[in-house]
Design a protein around this nucleic acid. Structure first.
Lengths: 195, 195, 195, 195
DNA sequence: AATGAATGAGACTTCATTCAT
DNA sequence: TATGAATGAAGTCTCATTCAT
């Protein structure tokens, strides 16, 4: 009953923190500001999270959860059709790059506070990405649709580098123009990966 | 004589700020810490720079200066041989990615303070990069060594994206292994750009 | 029925507050902590007591009640045999000094909050002690077992000083070793009070 | 030059903290209040002391220093004449009990913050007291002026208990009336210690 | 030119207390 | 009667910046 409200409040705060930090970075987002955006008092804020860093941790946890879902689907697809999975992944990257908040939020991750929870979430996200991309490439190699002159791990790494570049680009230049960047990215991937 | 000392002091502070910010980000680098590393008092610090943001501005200005020099050479080469210029550029990117401090410093740029000088330096750097890369691609197209099915501007943009990806990768995973990444990058560029 | 439960709850809270404050002092015992120890919610806490200071008041009231009972017995004895009464009092002081919680609780009384109820309880306790001790000494003087070269009031004061010293000593050094301190205290009292 | 001013400032803050804490206890003395009394800004406060607990530490350190000086003299005297030394000690205890601030300050010591410096100072003071009193008693026993049916350590402990009682008494009842308490205390000591 | 003591705004966080359920 | 989410005043501490020496 009130568990619903409790969850909603928590989500409100996480969302507010996400937006604030995406806009101003972690340090320049004050708890007061986050409270205002979330529409709660400072007391409520600290009723839900013990520290400011903990909210960042929760934001990352949330993101990690969403990433997991997306990557689960990509993984499934890859087993049957690596090229289709690659396209799903490309869409995912463009989705992220188009999300104005998320693009800005990347900046935060450069200057993270010393916090175990935060560090753990970041590590988990990085490893998950690396794992899935490696798997995807390996599947493509077996299916004969991806070049085999480099290990899956190395090729996966370069896909990761590419994604990071796109995100940073979006963060800098403002939300990405999908109609332009999308086809170009497809073209790039074909050139990069074909046997 | 005293002008020399003056310049040296200034350089010390800029260098200290650069190292501190590369390690802890802008906000978490306190002026006190920068002073300590530079071996000057806070009074001296504010004698040379009106605000903390101003030192960041100077750091960026310095970087911009170095970038200008490198790009000048690349520009010259490109006019004769775009492929050679591309290789110079690739070396430059790897140099940056191998510089532990610089890799960390990238993080700073995500959460910059509201400061005209800083913003200007960042804009100048971005534009310079874009200009040179576009020029380089255009030259390659004329020399018949780079694909012509996309505009120089768009291809240049993707080179920029790639560079950003490599830098972020280095910032995250620690200084880059040149021997691995270098050849791979050459390979990527060939696949990406060949007609 | 519900009056019994009501009383029990109240007693739980008082007891929890007593233990918390004995361990950490008044200010550092938070209502949240007391609630946890008592096994009630903050709502319940403030249902029974209007303020945190009020619980301290209740704790003191309780202590005063117990002191009253002990001193009533001592008073009765004193009328017949002041030396026996003195021995009862000595036992009482050692009892208190042996009670780990009580010894610690003394500390609280040094930094009491501005609260009428609390102040009243403290004053009452002090006056009761002074009254009974004075009476005891007076009885001893009449019975010829206590020196008469000083007024009962002054001698009583010194007994009080001695008791305070023992309690503080216990609070500092941990619970008192009865077998050592007991006989020594008897010896002291004899030397101090004999005619 | 400015070292003098620096020391003076430091002393001002220590003194202000001492007076505030003596009046309201540690927790209820806010740094803002201490700053006001000392006539400095909060910035200056934290320029001299890293935390509020550290000022308490400094206050205790100061007290310990003064105690050392007094006890040094008492020690010297004891070697020649334990009775005279005892009288010096009695004067010292009465001095403390007459100092309105010091008497109140004792209260603070009941609820000390968790702080290494503070704990160390308290331990040092306690041990010093115990050492000197034991030494004094031992000297008296050798000189034949103090009873020998108990060990110096135990008798010293009781002297300590007595002193604590007097201090607490003063803290509670307001500054002590020397003319009354002084002779009484002499009398007590004679009765307690004579062979 | 150089120092570092002094400042005070503002950040994060705690906690007694209220109130809707 | 009981709960615990919500509140916001107030506390400690940080840090960029100023200024007297």
């Amino acid at each position: 009953m009130s568990a619903i409200r409790r969850t909603a409040r928590r989500a409100d705060i996480i969302d507010a923190a996400y937006r604030c930090m995406a806009q101003h970075g972690y340090e320049r987002s004050t708890t007061a500001q986050i409270c205002k955006v979330a529409g709660v008092s400072s007391g409520t804020f600290f009723h839900y999270f013990p520290t400011k860093a903990a909210v960042l941790g929760a934001v990352l946890e949330d993101g990690l959860q969403r990433t997991r879902e997306v990557f689960e689907r990509i993984r499934d697809t890859a087993a049957r059709d690596a090229v289709a999975a690659l396209d799903q992944w490309r869409e995912h990257v463009l989705d992220e790059a188009s999300d104005e908040n998320l693009a800005g939020f990347i900046a935060v991750l450069g200057a993270v506070p010393d916090n175990a929870e935060v560090a753990a979430a970041l590590r988990a996200e990085a490893q998950l990405t690396r794992e899935v991309l490696t798997e995807l490439v390996a599947a493509g190699q077996e299916q004969g649709t991806i070049r085999t002159d480099r290990t899956p791990d190395r090729i996966g790494t370069w896909l990761g580098i590419l994604a990071r570049g796109v995100l940073e680009h979006a963060a800098e230049e403002g939300p990405v123009v999908r109609d332009t960047l999308g086809p170009e990215m497809t073209d790039m991937l074909i050139r990069l990966l074909r046997p």
